[in-house]
Design a binder for these strands. Structure first.
Length: 567
RNA sequence: GCGCCCAUGGCUUAACGGAUAAAGCACCAGUCUUCGGAACUGGGUAUGGGGGUUCGAUUCCCUCUGGGCGCACCA
């Protein structure tokens, strides 16, 4: 049990004794007071007051008088309708630091998932298009979810699903052949994205070419040359680019799925659903009628017999089940797909899937001018964004460390940029849209990734400068309020991880880390650790700093951010 | 038309149904013979409107307004 949970248990035990048989308090009822000077935990007396028909403030006074401070509890006091508990730094802090020191990078992990297998599909770019900042949000949310679920004891299978067939591919190849047959660009993947945009715009102005493109699509589906060979070649350029991007972002991907692999099976499954009576014909197409569930009509095959997203989604679900039979399946997809995914889940349930399906929905990244769209070409390419960020952090790093070698500057700038990019995308509720602003993204002050890295680097710096004094857990030397505050913040981490792994409100994790960093920064300015005269006190403070470092590192790792010792 | 999401200071965002609504940016004023100034401290007339449930509502319900998105052959 974490120190945090243990502290709650101890408080509950005291409360039970004080309250007697009439009321049985639970750990879930304990709250954290709005200000740390009010105590570490608070027990609200409202429910109790209702039962007893008494003023909650009076009850709080009575209850607090009945509890004698002992063990972990240093003080109990009533404030308004709350009974506030103050934990004793010496013993509570000792437990926290020892727990962190023992668990190290495993601090905060749990066994909640009991090895249940969960599949997380979170990387779904289309070939022949570019990777933009919108995809990046999807990647980071998924990556963090994978880390969280792993940390709380699930067996996680992270997967990607590449859109390598369909209308967009046909459009791109058609334009490639028509307008750029002889071209040999340096950056093929980027070039394909541009051709796709060009084609989309051309079609808007010249609707008469639609049929030409439809022919390309049909021939592709039928496996006819020369389109198939062109498809193979160009698909590879996109896939190579994806691999580079995934690698540099460190995205965990255990399984690769492709739309091209599931198209045929999808059509077969549609036929099976027809036979079973789950699906039916309607206006020449095949649908699943989900009116009963309030989900309308789910279209799963076109009138001309060709596949839709839904056709392939069905086949993919079957394939995942056959290969991995996960207990739970999570799809990280933007909120616009909400209806079709609910339709997919409902259909799967009708044919007997008893899995736990979750659509982890997030809102889109837009620009100030409005939505980004590859069709319109008004996208912020990931690679441009990354380069802009690296340029900014390289300049800053060079200024601060003129003596550093280029290689070190480059590596540091890269990590700072990635921290900024990731933190920027993860620091707000996935349910809310992000209006992307390059200026804002390039800010490294305040609530940002670089600030957290900086805090970590300063903590590391103190540990280096401490010289011969080594960290030692000696919490009776740590009596300052700010030190107590740090103990408490550190103790909360496992709870934050667990909660976030359940509701996927990833912004909570970001906010927690920032809060911890800020608390540490206050400590940093109030307490000149390396100048501490009493060496035992200094050693104790160093131990506290070590723990703060560890938790910052663990939490940032969860978000896919690597810490650095100097910056 | 039906459905889903969103609305909090100038801007971007927090707040298990609970205490004085909390931060960052920007702005102003300070701190420091710096364990690293990407820092710290201080500075504020903010919950879109109206009802309801509740001892208590930013949070839940209804309604209105204003945005975003989805609703049959696009992905």
């Amino acid at each position: 049990m974490s120190t945090y949970s243990e502290a709650k248990q101890k408080i509950i035990k005291e409360l039970k004794v004080a309250l007697g048989k009439g009321y049985s308090p639970t750990a879930a009822e304990l709250e954290t007071p709005p200000d740390s000077t009010m105590g570490d935990f608070a027990f609200p007396c409202f429910t109790l007051a209702k039962g007893l028909k008494k003023n909650p403030a009076e009850i709080a006074v009575e209850v607090s008088a009945k509890i004698e401070p002992k063990g972990w509890i240093e003080k109990v006091s009533a404030k308004g309708p709350y009974v506030n508990f103050f934990l004793k730094s010496e013993v509570f802090g000792k437990n926290v630091l020892e727990e962190i020191n023992l668990d190290k990078e495993n601090y905060g992990k749990a066994k909640e998932g009991r090895k249940r297998r969960v599949m997380v599909e979170y990387v779904q770019p289309n070939t022949h298009k570019e990777v933009h900042v919108g995809h990046v949000r999807n990647f980071f949310i998924g990556h963090t979810v994978v880390n969280l679920l792993n940390s709380v004891g699930y067996e996680v299978i992270p997967a990607c699903y590449i859109g390598d067939v369909g209308a967009h591919v046909a459009k791109c190849l058609w334009a490639l052949k028509k307008f750029h047959a002889e071209e040999k660009p340096d950056n093929w993947a980027k070039f394909l994205g541009e051709v796709y945009t060009e084609a989309s715009q051309y079609v808007e102005d010249h609707p008469e070419v639609k049929e030409e493109i439809a022919v390309v699509q049909r021939e592709l589906e039928a496996g006819k040359s020369p389109w198939v060979s062109l498809w193979r070649k160009t698909r590879k350029y996109s896939l190579n680019m994806f691999k580079d991007v995934f690698k540099e972002l460190g995205l965990p991907i255990d399984v690769w799925y492709f739309e091209s692999e599931v198209e045929k099976d999808g059509k077969k499954i549609v036929q099976q659903l027809l036979k079973k009576g789950v699906a039916q014909e309607s206006q020449g197409a095949i649908i699943v009628d989900l009116e009963k569930e309030g989900l309308g009509v789910y279209l799963i095959l076109k009138t001309d017999g060709s596949a839709l997203y839904s056709t392939k989604d069905l086949a993919l679900a079957y394939l995942k089940e056959a290969q991995y039979h996960p207990d739970r399946s999570i799809l990280v997809v933007d909120s616009r797909q909400s209806l079709v995914l609910q339709q997919l889940f409902a259909t799967l349930r009708r044919v007997g899937f008893k899995k736990d399906f979750t659509h982890l929905s997030y809102d889109f990244v837009t620009l100030k001018e409005g939505a980004m769209s590859s069709r319109k070409g008004n996208i912020i390419r990931y690679e441009n964004f990354r380069d802009t960020m690296i340029d900014a952090s390289r300049a800053e790093t060079k200024k601060r460390h003129p003596e550093w070698k280029d290689k070190k500057i480059e590596e540091t700038a890269r990590l700072i940029s990635f921290a900024a990019i990731r933190f920027g995308m993860l620091r707000q509720d996935p349910a809310k849209k992000i209006v992307f602003d390059m200026e804002e993204a390039m800010s490294f002050d305040g609530y940002t990734g670089p600030y957290l890295l900086y805090t970590y680097a300063r903590a590391q710096s103190i540990l280096r400068k401490a010289g011969s004094v080594k960290p030692k857990i000696e919490t009776k030397k740590l009596v300052l309020p700010i030190e107590h505050k740090l103990f408490f913040k550190l103790s909360e981490y496992p709870e934050i991880v667990l909660k976030t792994s359940q509701d996927f409100k990833l912004d909570r994790l970001a906010e927690y880390l920032f809060d911890l960093a800020k608390t540490f920064a206050t400590f940093y300015h109030e307490v000149p650790v390396t100048q501490t005269e009493d060496k035992e006190t200094m050693a104790a403070r160093l131990a506290l700093i070590e723990s703060v470092s560890q938790v910052l590192k663990n939490g940032l790792w969860m978000m896919g951010i690597e810490t650095i010792k100097e910056m």
